[in-house]
Design a protein around this nucleic acid. Sequence first.
DNA 1: TTTAAATGACTAACCAGTCAGTTATTTGGA
DNA 2: TCCAAATAACTGACTGGTTAGTCATTTAAA
Lengths: 210, 210
Amino acid sequence: MARARTSEAKDLRRSELMDAALEEFYERGFASARMDDIARRAGLSKGTLYLYFDNKEALFSSLVEAHALPRAERLEAISQSSGGGFAAISAMMNLAPTILRHTAIPKLVKILVANAAQFPASVTVYRTQIVERILRAVARALEAGRDKGEMNIDDPVMTARLVVAPVLFSLVWRITFEHDPEAKLDLEALFAQHEKILRRALSPVPEVAL
Amino acid sequence: MARARTSEAKDLRRSELMDAALEEFYERGFASARMDDIARRAGLSKGTLYLYFDNKEALFSSLVEAHALPRAERLEAISQSSGGGFAAISAMMNLAPTILRHTAIPKLVKILVANAAQFPASVTVYRTQIVERILRAVARALEAGRDKGEMNIDDPVMTARLVVAPVLFSLVWRITFEHDPEAKLDLEALFAQHEKILRRALSPVPEVAL
DNA sequence: TTTAAATGACTAACCAGTCAGTTATTTGGA
DNA sequence: TCCAAATAACTGACTGGTTAGTCATTTAAA
């Protein structure tokens, strides 16, 4: 293998090894994934893998930490840029299928949920750095909608969880049934329906009807 | 250990071993769970475990199959007995916290999701015997509500997924964050809010307002 | 020639699955 | 009622295969 001499080349190599680890952990599970296979997938040998990571557990933790920050920042930006209310909800619902289909989040969530008991520190990182930041961003978008008089919201914190729930539903459906050709899920239709229900439920009751 | 001579005693022993396996698989993951620990947890030796199950994989499959039928039947009965519509939704939402707190379903879902790639046959059993039966039962309850003129539903199949999504959200939250004392989730409040949103979204629009 | 990145054979530990031996329980003859 | 023989449930030391982690050696690049 061509050598990584500069520190940029090493950073790249490190992230290639992490990508390989994500795939192996996802496909075989943390315990069954072989360090040799991870190295091979990145086109390197096991010995080299150990130049970049102290051990299997450090490789796992670094995965979670590396993905945490950028993801959360992206989602917070989206929820803020749209100015809150139904526009923000709509922007998030439109983004959901892409996130589910083309980012590492579903795979990361799977390996994290599956190994939560073994890696409590990584779980806490993920909860505080991703999950709770996303939930707060959604709650803020709902509060903004209320302040604009566009939404009728009594409990933004619980409602934020309900807004996000179908995304997690789809995520679990995909990672669990993805090899089952009988189990299709129409993401676009699901999120369109979700948005419709939220609009009906959260729109202020027209005064005329009272 | 006192011996199991009758076939009833053997059935009991078998199910004790399965309970032990559920706990070990849940806590350590399928690959890391030791057959010796499973046997010990049931107060037996590893050799005895192999009298009841051919191998580790058979133990896993039997777990999924044993839990599948009774659970699905219970939930179908509830959704039918309440006569459909909001009464059925309400009955299910009231039941959700108990299912999440006091049944094996969350643990079973975790080990199944985590090992979906290794056991496609068990995944298919679970999907057809539990997941899709529950979703069909919910969809039927929604259709019944529409037929009664109590609900305004355009897509019962997608809506059923949205009704169930917060249950899965809570399930994943619990199995992932259960050891994290900072991460509390008020199940009763969440499902109360969910029911409120569904009532608002699915109630027919009052004619006066049009 | 020097450097340090990369390699892969090696070892030490782990564990699924086996099976020869042990022992609780039942059976039936005295 | 007692006890010896028969039965089969149960045990755990053992084996064979697997893999995380090491390190002496090789080799690409400066």
